[in-house]
């Protein structure tokens, strides 16, 4: 049994959710999702293409910022990541603010591309390292992007999974609900029930989140770490032990 830290567990866990994708795009300020995408690329022997916004060596776009959205619109991106100031049990995300819009009491940055990309990209992974009932709420105060759509509305994509610092949930777009799939080592179901503000189902085969094996860890601490250091030197140094 090899020791690993929480960031390494999250990277390996999200990489498992990305198996089989042809093209993963990663937004800005996302070192853990970007590391997971790069790990997937290594594990697929390069079959998976990765685009990391803000990293010129990992983007092919030459038609401006709109090209990302055009790619997504055509189905050329299979996976993407969103966080959320609030995430509710129906998969709605709020990136705008807390309180009664427009007079929010707390204002976040804004919805960015979420209202569009949530429709276009099949595997959207919601990622919040802090598993907190103030984030995982019964109902978001503002819907930046809707988790599901009524029948008859054209839609290719949406939430696929929710990964937090405590657990992995899968999203069922027909039911519009999350199912707890695995619990990270050291975490318990009662604690997750107490710290999740929305109702969710529990998978009959609920398990402990798989620990990364030695091969995976050496990839994360080797090739992936060196690649991620180009964009996130502080993260690579402090979380993956990559010398500057």
């Amino acid at each position: 049994m090899t020791n690993f830290n929480r960031h390494e567990l999250l990277i390996a866990t999200m990489a498992r959710l990305l198996i089989g994708t042809r093209h993963i795009a990663v937004g800005v300020s996302s070192p853990i999702p970007a590391s997971a995408a790069l790990l997937t690329r290594h594990q697929s022997n390069g079959a998976t293409r990765v685009s990391i916004l803000g990293d010129p060596s990992n983007t092919f776009w030459s038609d401006g910022g709109k090209e990302l959205f055009d790619c997504a619109a055509q189905g050329r991106i299979d996976a993407f990541f969103f966080s959320g100031g609030q995430i509710d049990g129906a998969g709605n995300i709020n990136l705008v603010g807390i309180g009664d819009y427009p007079r929010s009491t707390v204002r976040f940055g804004g919805s960015y591309g979420s209202a569009f990309l949530y429709y276009m990209i099949p595997r959207i992974i919601l990622f919040r390292p802090d598993h907190d009932p103030r984030v995982l709420v019964p109902k978001v105060d503002f819907i930046s992007a809707a988790g599901t759509s009524p029948p008859g509305v054209w839609r290719r994509g949406g939430p696929y999974a929710l990964v937090t610092g405590k657990a992995v949930f899968h999203f069922d777009s027909n039911e519009g609900r999350f199912t707890l799939q695995s619990v990270h080592p050291g975490e318990t179901l009662p604690d997750i029930q107490a710290t999740t503000g929305f109702a969710f189902d529990v998978a009959p085969d609920l398990s402990e989140t798989e620990s990364p094996d030695a091969t995976t860890l050496s990839l994360i601490r080797g090739s992936v770490g060196r690649e991620i250091a180009a964009t996130y030197p502080k993260f690579a140094r402090e979380s993956l032990g990559i010398a500057a």
Partner: peptide, 8 residues
């Protein structure tokens, strides 16, 4: 496309 269902 998309955007439907968003409070935006």
């Amino acid at each position: 496309r998309g955007v439907l269902g968003s409070d935006i």
